[in-house]
Simulated assay, not measured.
Amino acid sequence: MPRYALQVEYDGTPFAGWQWQEDQPSVQGAIEAALARLEPEVPRIAAAGRTDAGVHATGQVCHCDMARDWDPFRLSEALNYHLKPAPVAIRACARVDADWHARFSALERRYLFRILCRRAPATFAARQFWQVKHPLDVAAMRAGAAHLLGRHDFTTFRSVICQAKSPVKTMDAIEITQVQGLSGPEVEFRLRARSFLHNQVRSIVGTLERVGSGGWPPDRVKTALEARDRAACGPVSPPGGLYLTGVGYPVDPFAG
């Protein structure tokens, strides 16, 4: 069966997450329903990462196995037609080898988290970021984030329901910048690692927000990390500000 890689963008607001669920809407379910309009016996699709309810993506990657030998462009066009009106789009499609896997072939995942800093309620895209009513000290947050770079036991920043076999992960990058967004000043967090624990990004951002607001000194992030205790973590940030922006592979299947 020909295998295809799909680059997927979605607004996670109306979904209970990526993963298929029998009684709730999911991104996986929306894509599989569209695939079933093209071929009735398409097997389950697999994704690079399972985003939670309310989490968005601009660069999620999944793969599907088809019975027909589809032209990748025609397949993406057909899927986008049948995905309407769900807020899901296939941005790119590529033929890949039969042993290529969206999850297991991946070398890294990249996430973006957006915080809007303003007192007035947001009227546009309110579920596309986390809104706080105070400015944030970017330099202090960078100092706190520096303690998280490298290989660590991230038990403190791991959900109690996380199913990963080990809490040890390597954080390759945490970049924090202030930008002027359409609705006002935003702080963007860009995190990169081979893989992440459940709720790890949201736990890290919620903790760094405490640093940026002056509630925590930067060194307390190091203390929390070394505690290896979920109770030492700061608050978990809401899902609406989180985006899976890209997945890295030895060879980019969508290049060219």
Rank of each mutant, 00 (worst) to 15 (best):
R127S: 12
L197D: 01
L107I: 05
M66D: 07
L112A: 05
A140Y: 14
G241A: 06
A173W: 06
Y81M: 09
P121L: 09
L116D: 04
A227S: 13
C117T: 11
D252S: 13
A173V: 10
E22G: 11
S237L: 02
A48P: 02
D252V: 13
L112F: 03
G256A: 15
R142S: 10
L149Q: 11
F124N: 10
Q178P: 03
Q21A: 12
Y81Q: 12
P43M: 06
W18F: 12
S159N: 01
L35I: 06
D71E: 14
R50W: 10
S26N: 07
D65T: 06
T123L: 14
T123P: 05
A16C: 15
Q24C: 14
S159P: 04
T245N: 08
Q24N: 13
F73K: 10
V88C: 01
L38R: 05
I90L: 07
K222R: 15
R194K: 11
W70K: 02
E41N: 11
Y111S: 01
R68C: 09
A98V: 12
R74Y: 10
A193T: 13
A89Q: 13
A255F: 14
G49F: 04
H56P: 00
A92N: 12
Y10L: 08
P85Y: 05
D97Y: 08
A193L: 12
M171C: 15
H134Y: 11
F157G: 05
R192V: 14
A89N: 06
F189P: 00
C64G: 07
R103M: 07
R118C: 07
Q131S: 04
L136S: 07
A33V: 03
L225W: 02
R228W: 05
L112Y: 01
R220A: 03
L244F: 05
M171A: 10
P43N: 01
V179L: 11
F196W: 13
K84V: 14
G246I: 14
R37F: 03
C233W: 00
E188I: 15
L75G: 07
L244H: 03
A106G: 06
E186L: 10
A232H: 01
T245K: 03
V42R: 09
A34N: 04
D71K: 09
A46W: 08
T13R: 14
T223P: 00
P253R: 13
G215S: 15
K133V: 05
C233H: 00
V247A: 06
E188K: 03
A173R: 14
P218E: 09
V168F: 09
P14K: 07
H63C: 04
V236F: 01
V236N: 01
R202C: 00
K169G: 11
S166A: 12
E108D: 13
D69A: 11
V179D: 04
C117F: 02
P238M: 02
P85E: 07
F254T: 08
K165M: 12
G248S: 15
S76Q: 15
Y10P: 01
A146N: 10
E22H: 15
A46G: 03
R50D: 06
I174C: 06
S203E: 01
G150P: 05
V187G: 03
Y243H: 04
V211Y: 00
G150I: 09
D252L: 08
E41M: 09
N80S: 10
E188L: 15
T177I: 04
C93Y: 05
